[in-house]
Design a protein around this nucleic acid. Structure first.
Lengths: 188, 188
DNA sequence: GTACTTACTTACTAATAAGTAAGTATATTT
DNA sequence: AAATATACTTACTTATTAGTAAGTAAGTAC
């Protein structure tokens, strides 16, 4: 089924944010793309921060859906990890989008305060799932790594966020090199 | 000696960019901080992009100075690596600044085209020096790691960029965990 | 069929932005 | 002493932005 106007606004806003950051798009941009007026966007999301929260919450929902699919579809922890990393691959493929955390981190202190718990929740959810996956993999002997699993999860999240950004500056080859380095460090 | 007005403008712009991004500061902000007028900033840097280029070039110069100091001051490659990582530590200490690459990556495609070679040069310079340091350390047996040294250097650059961003969202504990994980993976 | 809701449009406001043109005071050069 | 360069200020323009108030057309509820 086609997206409602409201859903389309969120999808376009997400894309703008991950393409150029929160400050680089206006309600007018989105209105034009949907062939509606500025005020129609305000009807659905009165303040720009309402739209931002919706984008972050949609992204968390999207991740939780991925987790559900993973439960039945992935047989190994490497499968799970690869599914996780595909989130970043997809961003790279969509015209070098950066990840949502990376896109919002720089502007974070200029953004409305109640964005922060929403973003924190999203990142904790992602890092938490990755931590559990790493623990499980180390228990079964599938992965080997030193230190605390949650620290390793934080390293992977920050590396991938940085990799998408570095790819913009140095090229996409860098992204792949970083990604395979991270995997190799786990399977040895 | 005190900074000239021109130098102060660059220093303040750098700080704004790494604090809140390129789009979140105006010439008016800088003028106010220096108790001069809007147009005085335009006198020194006619276009905002001129100021941006100056910030990136100053940052590269700063790095090259660090390299010179390192040549005589650092006895081991671990000393060199720690000096490199101190760049990021200093950003964390200065009210959770993100690194310049990370700050500009999100907005990159909205920025004037001639910013890109300047930023590319800065990042290549940093990555190049880190690559040489890693090679040297592996040759002497000080560090151990798999794969190509330049890939490992890319991983460290992206991880640290991401770590500063993740620290904003999840807290500074994450930063330290990521940093020590990276070092531990080299010295084992 | 009347009240109410949904999803908008029209038409605006207020604020902020980058950038410019013209003028001025002070120092430097010739 | 006159000309010129430096480092600004004053006063402005143009463009863009988030946000709003009031109106409307089409559907839904009762």
């Amino acid at each position: 089924m086609p997206l409602s106007t409201k859903e389309s606004i969120v999808a376009l806003a997400e894309n703008h944010i991950q393409q150029n950051g929160y400050n680089a798009f206006s309600y007018h941009d989105i209105a034009m793309q949907l062939d509606i007026k500025n005020a129609a966007v305000h009807y659905h999301f009165p303040k720009k921060e309402d739209l931002l929260i919706a984008v972050v919450e949609k992204s968390e929902q999207h991740f939780l859906n991925m987790v559900e699919v993973s439960k039945t579809a992935d047989k190994s922890c490497l499968d799970k990890l690869n599914r996780f990393l595909r989130i970043y691959d997809n961003n790279l493929d969509r015209q070098n989008r950066v990840c949502l955390m990376g896109a919002l981190a720089t502007d974070l202190f200029t953004l409305p305060a109640h964005l922060r718990p929403a973003l924190n929740r999203l990142v904790e959810t992602m890092k938490g799932w990755l931590t559990e996956t790493l623990k499980e993999a180390r228990d079964t002997g599938e992965f080997q790594f030193d230190g605390v699993a949650s620290d390793r999860a934080a390293l992977i999240c920050s590396s991938m966020a940085g990799a998408l950004q570095l790819a913009r500056v140095l090229g996409n080859k860098e992204y792949k090199a970083i990604k395979y380095q991270l995997i190799k460090d786990l399977i040895q």
